[in-house]
Design a protein around this nucleic acid. Structure first.
Length: 805
RNA sequence: GCAGGAGUGGCGGAAUGGCAGACGCAUCAGACUCAAAAUCUGACGUGGGCAACCACGUGUGGGUUCAAGUCCCAUCUCCUGCACCA
């Protein structure tokens, strides 16, 4: 043994060399084929890197390194999503400027990432808190504003009592703040909103043209929640007003036996004088208002409600008078805040009708067996025919829907309507550590964007970052900064004091990487035309309805503005599973099961950590950490290293290994592209086991092995390359090729079965004719063949099956 | 409730409808060592048998097929989202 495998020494050595050689910089040679691989940039938290971070980073690092060896111009960048609450909270507690906190955290994160040997192009590092960066975040906001997609609205928002900040709907999970877990209450505030709903259809349709894992597509479609139906006007008996409802089942209109409005519906107050049980109504309303979001979702969904005495509606298709109820199962925020209830064909209406003894009329009958609407609502639309419905009788549900929509439009009592669950994006945060919103409010001109030449609008220095209890941003106290002049009329005006949410900077960062130092534009047209779309983007499932949806929205907007060349930013999206503690639980300080990547690097080396995280299991599933598993991966690398003790001078492959070499190249190449890193590594382990069994390996075989292993364990293999005296650098070497014809063994062992049960095995030539193989198989089976042969099956290279009676 | 995913040795996990358990871990035995660690070699699904071998075996129950972990139907459990969206 010439030299021990010593990761500490080797890894430092190669970091310096790669750095000096600018080994992994993406070039501006736009004639080469490009590959843009992207991982979600981290929030540089005070805790430093977690062992969960390296999993996706290593996976795409492998892809990036392999693509470079295959001749692509690869962009694999990294940066910092550094605005955000934890930094601000830390700054408040420790009385340090958040900018300093961010700098420290970034430095720590960067050192940790660099210790793992990622092939990031550090010349393109970006930071969302850098004014040269957020200038363009503000610029995009101004474009949205000028196009009418950013607007200010007085509205009840989700208010986190602990963070003292408004949250987007997407940030409220089970009625509590996604970030801190504190209670979220409703609070009325004037907030900046982005009209993401305007892009709802485009966000759904765009999914047809991209290669995302299925569950991401499904989640986004569900979150947007498009539904097609109709709005219908119900006259109020003896009144001018009509009560408008939204329904997806206009076909069941003849079955509507009552109506329900949300407790907040404006007609309740409007007709107060007509309502004889007003006290009851008020009591119900108060009770409903007191229910928090959490209670609404967690409580058993027992229906509650009160009838509006003295007010009746008229079913427009049959003129029947029906009662109107109020109930909190009808939401003011969806549709029109009022529904027509068809208890025979809707589960919720059925529950409500049962509880309050309201009449039901069946208007759809089952075509596959009888249905009893006294047992449950019949909601199946695929197997139903209309009854008790005048001109709809006998039609199938789909046709009846269409016919009713036509009827409603003809008679002027309704119209087609598409609704979405998606709401506009609450874009204001009452915080310091975010991008200032580049808008001023002028008494004369209203909200006006500042002049583009004033960008970036710098975040001012303040004395206190403390959020205020009255819901104002800390910036509001900066009167010098707040008072300004209107860019439109020159009169006095006030600056907007809310800042942008963390999602702003991350909604376009991938564009900046293509040209990170541009001072004229967010990136040059040439750079965007060349690099977009991102070929492969990997990130967490938790961002499916947040970052991923928001950034697609901005991108589609920028496409409409002719800023970017593609209508979708990401061609392919995958998601990694979580790394859990040894006990199978989520890693957390309180559970005491946190593994620090620095410790693993210290004890075993970065290459071992990288190998282990790829070998741990299927990439998309969560996996539990195992210290013994780490040891096993180090043992594998040691065994690769020690192949240098038994290597011969031969350049090519030895004849008995040729097939195996070609098979391994094929398997590793394919597996790396298909996220199957665990089986790729297993194949390489199997290969070296073969070398040890023979106690020899040729130089040519070892060359191929370390080239295949290089993307996974770049430091060790680069060192071996040098020690073995190969020319140049391994990272610049071409990826090994395989010959399909040579991946097939010339002789194979096949299973010989009787009636599908394996009885023996047989060695045959790969091209032996069927008759010969079957004859040999019969001979091998001998007297086990003792019945009448019914069928003989030969699957070439696999199996012989003799079927006998 | 709806949607997506998963149920395979002691453990992590492999298997284009074609010999289930690759690869790794743990365990056991042997070699080396005064000894231990490290390393190397071998065994390792369950039951029976000294053995060759036999039977059983991929959550459960059916089905399709010469052949099913894989396809179809039903069912149970677990995970992850969403959840009164009319």
């Amino acid at each position: 043994m010439e030299k021990m495998y010593s990761p500490k020494v080797i890894e430092k050595k190669w970091h310096k060399i790669w750095d000096a050689e600018k080994a992994f910089a993406a070039t501006e040679d736009y004639s080469k084929p490009k590959y843009y691989a992207l991982v979600e940039f981290p929030y540089p938290s005070g805790q430093g890197l977690h062992v969960g971070h390296p999993r996706p980073y290593t996976a795409l690092d492998i892809v990036a390194r392999k693509r470079r060896m295959q001749g692509y111009n690869v962009l694999y960048p990294m940066g910092w999503d550094a605005f955000g609450l934890p930094t601000e909270n830390y700054a408040i507690q420790n009385k340090i400027h958040p900018r300093i906190v961010t700098e420290n955290n970034v430095q720590r994160f960067k050192e940790q990432l660099q210790s793992l040997g990622y092939s990031f192009d550090w010349d393109r590092e970006i930071n969302t808190t850098d004014p040269d960066y957020y200038k363009w975040t503000q610029w995009i906001f101004m474009k949205l504003f000028k196009e009418g997609l950013a607007y200010k609205k007085e509205m009840p928002i989700n208010w986190c009592t602990s963070c003292k900040v408004g949250l987007a709907n997407e940030e409220v999970v089970n009625g509590v703040c996604e970030r801190c877990g504190s209670e979220v209450v409703r609070k009325v505030k004037s907030e900046w909103m982005l009209k993401i709903t305007e892009y709802a259809d485009k966000l759904i349709d765009g999914l047809n043209d991209v290669d995302y894992i299925e569950k991401v597509k499904v989640s986004q479609v569900n979150w947007i929640g498009r539904s097609e139906g109709a709005e219908v006007d119900f006259a109020l008996a003896g009144k001018e007003d009509k009560l408008r409802v939204y329904t997806t089942r206009p076909d069941t209109l003849f079955g509507a036996t009552y109506m329900v409005v949300s407790p907040e519906h404006p007609y309740i107050d409007k007709y107060q004088s007509e309502i004889s049980n007003w006290d009851e109504i008020i009591a119900y309303r108060e009770a409903a208002a007191k229910k928090s979001e959490f209670e609404r979702t967690e409580l058993v969904k027992e229906k509650t409600g009160v009838v509006l005495d003295g007010l009746k509606a008229i079913n427009p298709v049959n003129g029947k008078e029906i009662p109107i109820w109020i109930s909190d199962y009808v939401l003011m925020t969806y549709g029109t805040g009022a529904i027509m209830a068809v208890p025979a064909h809707d589960d919720r209406d059925w529950d409500f009708a049962k509880k309050f003894n309201l009449p039901m009329i069946q208007v759809v009958e089952g075509t596959e067996g009888a249905v009893d609407i006294n047992e449950a609502a019949f909601t199946d639309v695929a197997t139903g025919k209309l009854i008790n419905s005048d001109f709809l009788n006998g039609l199938e549900v789909t046709d009846a829907k269409e016919k009713m929509k036509e009827f409603l439009e003809e008679k002027g009592i309704g119209n087609r309507k598409v609704n979405y669950k998606l709401r506009d994006w609450v874009f204001s945060r009452q915080r310091y550590w975010g991008e200032p919103i580049p808008i001023v409010e002028c008494d004369k001109c209203g909200y006006v964007a500042i002049d583009e030449s004033e960008l970036p609008l710098m975040l001012p220095e303040v004395d206190s970052y403390m959020p205020t209890d009255n819901g104002e941003s800390p910036l509001a106290a900066m009167t010098d900064w707040v008072n300004t002049i209107c860019p439109c009329c020159g009169g006095p005006a006030k600056r907007e004091t809310d800042t942008m949410p963390q999602w702003a900077g991350s909604s376009w960062y991938f564009l900046r990487y293509t040209d990170p130092k541009n001072t004229e534009a967010l990136a040059s047209k040439e750079a965007l035309d060349y690099w977009l779309p991102i070929d492969w983007y990997n990130g967490g499932m938790e961002h499916t309805t947040l970052h991923l949806l928001y950034s697609r929205f901005w991108h589609k907007f920028l496409y409409d503005q002719k800023v970017v060349p593609t209508h979708e930013p990401y061609q392919k999206r995958t998601s990694h599973g979580m790394i859990l503690g040894e006990n199978g639980e989520k890693m957390s300080k309180s559970r005491g099961n946190v593994v620090n990547p620095d410790d693993i690097v210290n004890e075993f080396g970065a290459d071992t950590l990288r190998t282990y995280e790829m070998f741990i299991g299927a990439f998309e599933l969560s996996a539990s950490w195992s210290q013994d598993g780490v040891k096993g991966c180090r043992r594998f690398l040691d065994r690769v290293w020690k192949l240098m003790d038994i290597v011969s001078d031969e350049d090519g492959y030895s004849s008995d290994m040729e097939t195996k070499m070609h098979q391994t190249i094929k398997k590793v190449s394919n597996d790396f592209e298909n996220l199957k890193f665990n089986t790729a590594i297993a194949a390489m382990m199997a290969l070296i086991n073969d070398f040890y069994k023979k106690d020899s390996v040729t130089k040519g075989e070892l060359k191929t092995l370390i080239t295949l292993l290089n993307p996974v364990a770049p430091h060790m293999t680069e060192e071996m390359w040098e020690m073995l005296g190969f020319e140049g650098r391994l990272y610049q070497t071409a990826w090994p090729e395989y010959d399909e014809a040579k991946t097939v063994e010339s002789t194979v062992e096949i299973a010989v079965q009787i009636n599908g049960k394996t009885k023996t095995t047989l060695a045959i030539g790969k091209d032996d004719p069927k008759d010969d193989v079957i004859a040999k198989a019969k001979e091998a089976l001998g007297d086990k063949l003792n019945g009448t042969i019914v069928k003989e099956i030969y699957v070439p290279g696999r199996i012989v099956n003799i079927v006998q009676k």
